Computed example of a mutant assay.
Amino acid sequence: MSRHEKHKSHRVGWLRAAVLGANDGIVSTASLIIGVAAASSTQDNILLVGVAGLVAGAMSMAAGEYVSVSSQSDTENADLALEKKSLEHDFEFEKDELAEIYESRGLDPVLAVQVAQQLMAHDALGAHARDEIGISTSATAQPVQAAVSSACTFTVGAALPLLVAWVIPGRFLISAVAILSLLFLALLGGLAARAGGASMTIGACRVTFWGALAMALTAGVGRFFGVAA
């Protein structure tokens, strides 16, 4: 019976954007709510700030991811265009260059030339994109996918502490938002780590640590300015 390994690297693009969006949504919105609540604001003001933070954050995440990944895509396309032009003008040089790459990876010189010839006969640009430039079809930049993924997951993440602030008002608001948001972060980190084939414990701990630090700092800022006012 043959065995097929289930690799996780093809998930890197969307997983990174999704985790970043959800994590930022929880951390930024929870921190914003806690900071404003620590300044002794009313629940209406706290919810207003939270909703504004959700909308602004989702749009910021979408725009940032789109611009960032588009820049990566532009660079990849420029490299591919350059390689395509080189293949058209000096095919033999490109074949020798590819053979040298395979030889440096451990192939016999004669076999390296044969492999380069066969791969280039099948898909010359694809062979050079993969083995010379390092562009893989499974990791190709996709700006729209990254933007939508980040915006949607940010919205979901931000909605969680906002919902807690709406359901639990009063003197329990800060502690409820902090505790439940940290639980959300731990769950997110664990699930993201599992999806990527890593340790769920490590994934949960690292996002929880940074989330707790962000909330503590914003609570301190809110408390300071609330007293100063």
Rank of each mutant, 00 (worst) to 15 (best):
E5V: 03
E5M: 00
K6H: 01
K6P: 06
K8D: 00
H10I: 06
R11K: 07
R11Y: 02
V12Y: 04
V12N: 04
G13C: 01
L15Q: 10
L20I: 13
G21Y: 11
N23D: 12
G25T: 12
S28P: 08
T29R: 03
S31N: 05
L32F: 14
I34F: 01
G35P: 07
G35L: 07
V36S: 08
S41R: 07
S41F: 14
T42Q: 11
T42P: 04
Q43D: 13
Q43I: 12
V55M: 12
A58K: 02
A58M: 11
M61V: 10
A62E: 03
A63V: 15
A63P: 07
S71A: 15
D74L: 01
D74K: 01
T75L: 13
T75A: 13
E76P: 06
A78D: 12
L80T: 09
L80N: 02
A81H: 12
L82D: 13
L82Y: 14
L82E: 15
E83D: 07
K85T: 13
K85W: 06
L87E: 07
H89I: 08
D90P: 05
F91S: 13
E92N: 14
F93E: 14
E94T: 00
E94F: 04
K95T: 09
D96R: 12
E97I: 01
E97V: 11
L98Q: 10
L98E: 04
I101A: 10
D108K: 12
D108P: 07
V110C: 00
L111F: 09
V115D: 09
Q118N: 14
L119F: 00
D123L: 05
A124I: 01
L125N: 08
L125I: 08
H128M: 12
H128L: 15
A129Q: 05
E132A: 14
I133M: 09
I135T: 10
S136N: 14
A139I: 03
T140M: 12
Q142N: 11
P143L: 04
P143C: 02
T153I: 06
F154V: 08
T155P: 09
G157K: 11
A158M: 10
A159N: 05
L160A: 13
L162A: 13
L163P: 01
L163Y: 13
V164K: 09
A165L: 08
W166C: 02
I168Y: 11
P169I: 11
G170N: 10
F172M: 10
F172I: 00
F172A: 14
L173S: 05
L173C: 09
L173H: 06
I174L: 13
I174P: 03
S181N: 04
S181M: 03
L183R: 00
F184I: 03
F184R: 02
L187V: 15
G190D: 01
G190K: 03
R194Y: 07
A195S: 12
G196Q: 07
A198M: 05
S199M: 06
S199P: 12
S199G: 08
S199E: 04
T201L: 15
R206K: 15
V207Y: 10
W210T: 15
G211S: 10
A212N: 08
A214P: 11
L217W: 07
L217V: 15
V221D: 09
G222Y: 12
F225G: 02
G226C: 05
A228Y: 14
